[in-house]
Design a protein around this nucleic acid. Sequence first.
DNA 1: GGTTGACCTGGAGTGCACTCCAGGTGACAT
DNA 2: ATGTCACCTGGAGTGCACTCCAGGTCAACC
Lengths: 144, 144
Amino acid sequence: MYTPGQVAEETGFSIDTLRYYERIGLLERVERNSAGQRRFSEEDVGWLGMVRCLRDTGMPIAEMLRFAALVRDGEETIGDRITLLEAHDQEVEEQIALLRERQTAIRRKIQYYRDVLALRAEVDSDPPLPEPASHKTSEEHASH
Amino acid sequence: MYTPGQVAEETGFSIDTLRYYERIGLLERVERNSAGQRRFSEEDVGWLGMVRCLRDTGMPIAEMLRFAALVRDGEETIGDRITLLEAHDQEVEEQIALLRERQTAIRRKIQYYRDVLALRAEVDSDPPLPEPASHKTSEEHASH
DNA sequence: GGTTGACCTGGAGTGCACTCCAGGTGACAT
DNA sequence: ATGTCACCTGGAGTGCACTCCAGGTCAACC
């Protein structure tokens, strides 16, 4: 049995968020002690671990609620749970791929800036080089 | 010169979003034709490509505005731009690492569900196996 | 017996990033 | 002339996921 503070500590959700999750039904009615304070079970904490995974991977709350409903409805929904999680896994895969792609572009940009600096340093240290006619370098972001 | 519709098409930002970006200064005052309609330059579109990278990798608008300000302030800010982008690149790296980690946990869960199904199929086909005393498998999510 | 400190409730407020709307303009096709 | 289409403006509204608040309850320590 864990106090709200302990669970907040362990799961990284704030106490307010835990209450919020209970209110909207993402967390099943948590037990209380005699004073009406929440006492989270091991199972609650385990479920919150799952919620954390799903949330950190961008699953909207509405879908987590659907998943929670499946879990509540017992073993006969395991097939559906697999389907749901696999679809989500696929989305995570795509998220990562997009991130990597964008990251590559950002790194190219960084390299571009580095090149500009290097070039400037070179020009500053050398006496003016013989330069081809036109100028006006039209700056960067024709990026691709 | 591109019409708003074309830019929306190319960059994936809605026309409303383009207007919004201009309003808040993320996009510099876009040129207009005689009728007051926007005509985006090649440079605008290039910049929007950068904005897309940053946005897709989770950079908040406030920070994109800081970056935009650096770009506006000319070449002497290139060092700062590199610093900013490198910090962001680092964050993207961490994002991806977290995503991968959570994904692994989700996949473990999927596998767990698969095992449950497999086990059930086995039990259903065989006659009841000799089973140790206690029951009530306390269900899943003590995940790890 | 008084003061922390951790918790409770219902409900209101926040921040972010858009998104929508009403009412209007100008260019072009039928 | 009459649509209709793509665009314009300022401002209001939306959706999501929290986060905060006022006022209150217990238990425990000084």
